[in-house]
């Protein structure tokens, strides 16, 4: 009997392995359940609704792929997509390169670095609506920056939010102004993980500052850089808040993005079914970005 007890109480190596494998899943279970509830289930719901004609009031009517057929021919959707691609291009270049350059310069600052970090990061933690409102006042042609510039003798000043050719860039500038401080912090964190002795070695070998930047710093920052590029691309497709608050997609739909167009279709135009098909298209674009980076990772790129 004693042998039996000792045998049964002694965990078998197989069970221990199973338990060990199960334990991490138990830890992440609450997060998984929450994610399932707020992301997976609504995603399935969106998939279903995109196949229906629904005004949000009467029961949805199943119409198959008709919403997607409409989407393919929707001129407004292509306008919004074009704006999103411009947005993506702007954000993947200007804030990224600017924050990288400032991060390199700031990493050389010995005294007061924290002050600069806090100052540059501050816009990122300010409320989007508040900063968007403040910038709307700055852009106001009757009370804002134009009035100041007119006082200094400037004429023919642009209508920042009112000119269809400039409005998207004006709003993107504000979002970029908020965003670059965040990227700066990420780059500075990346710098802390780089091997400074390599820079010293390169310097001893006679490399110039530019050469060190391209051949020593950038390769070491590649994981951070790729992560930033992936995040920026995905967020560029999901951009919504600044456009919604500052222009509402106008003037004349000049700043319409896919997300604002989706919002309008769902809530103003009473077409949640069609809006869901737009949402899926948006998810597809983000999915492509993730897939590309996944492929690069498989090819040995570090992310």
């Amino acid at each position: 009997m004693a042998d039996m007890v000792s045998l049964s109480s002694k965990p078998r190596p197989g069970n221990r392995r199973k338990r060990k494998a199960l334990l991490p899943w138990l830890y992440v279970l609450p997060a998984l359940l929450l994610t399932g509830f707020v992301i997976a289930i609504p995603t399935v719901g969106t998939l279903y609704i995109s196949l229906t004609n629904w005004d949000g009031i009467r029961p949805p009517e199943f119409i198959g792929l008709q919403n997607f057929a409409t989407l393919i021919q929707d001129v407004q959707f292509y306008k919004a997509l074009k704006n999103n691609l411009i947005w993506l291009l702007l954000f993947c270049t200007i804030p990224v390169s600017f924050s990288l350059i400032v991060a390199v310069l700031l990493s050389r600052v010995r005294r007061g670095q924290m002050f600069y970090r806090v100052t540059f990061f501050l816009p990122y933690i300010c409320s989007t609506v508040v900063t968007a409102k403040i910038w709307s006042w700055i852009y106001n042609p009757f009370f804002g920056i134009n009035k100041v510039l007119e006082g200094w003798g400037f004429t023919n000043l642009p209508l920042w939010l009112g000119d269809p050719d400039k409005a998207l860039f004006s709003v993107a500038f504000v979002d970029g102004w908020r965003y670059w401080g965040f990227l700066l912090i990420l780059f500075l964190t990346g710098f802390h993980q780089t091997d400074r002795s390599l820079e010293e070695a390169a310097m001893i070998d006679g490399a110039g500052k530019l050469r060190i930047f391209w051949s020593v710093i950038i390769p070491q920052l590649r994981p951070t850089l790729l992560l930033i590029m992936m995040m920026t691309m995905i967020w560029s497709f999901a951009a919504f808040d600044y456009v919604y608050v500052m222009t509402g997609g106008g003037p004349g739909n000049a700043t319409e993005l896919i997300a604002t167009y989706m919002y309008k279709e769902a809530l103003q135009n009473q077409a949640p079914g069609y809006a869901s098909s737009i949402a899926l298209a948006l998810a597809l674009f983000s999915g492509i970005v993730i897939a590309v980076f996944g492929y690069l990772r498989k090819r040995g790129w570090e992310i």
Partner: peptide
């Protein structure tokens, strides 16, 4: 009607600004 209304106000600026 709802959609006519949304279309009308959402695109009026485009007419003002010669976009349509």
């Amino acid at each position: 009607p709802a959609q006519t209304r949304v279309f009308s106000y959402d695109n009026l600026e485009a007419v003002f600004l010669d976009g349509m």
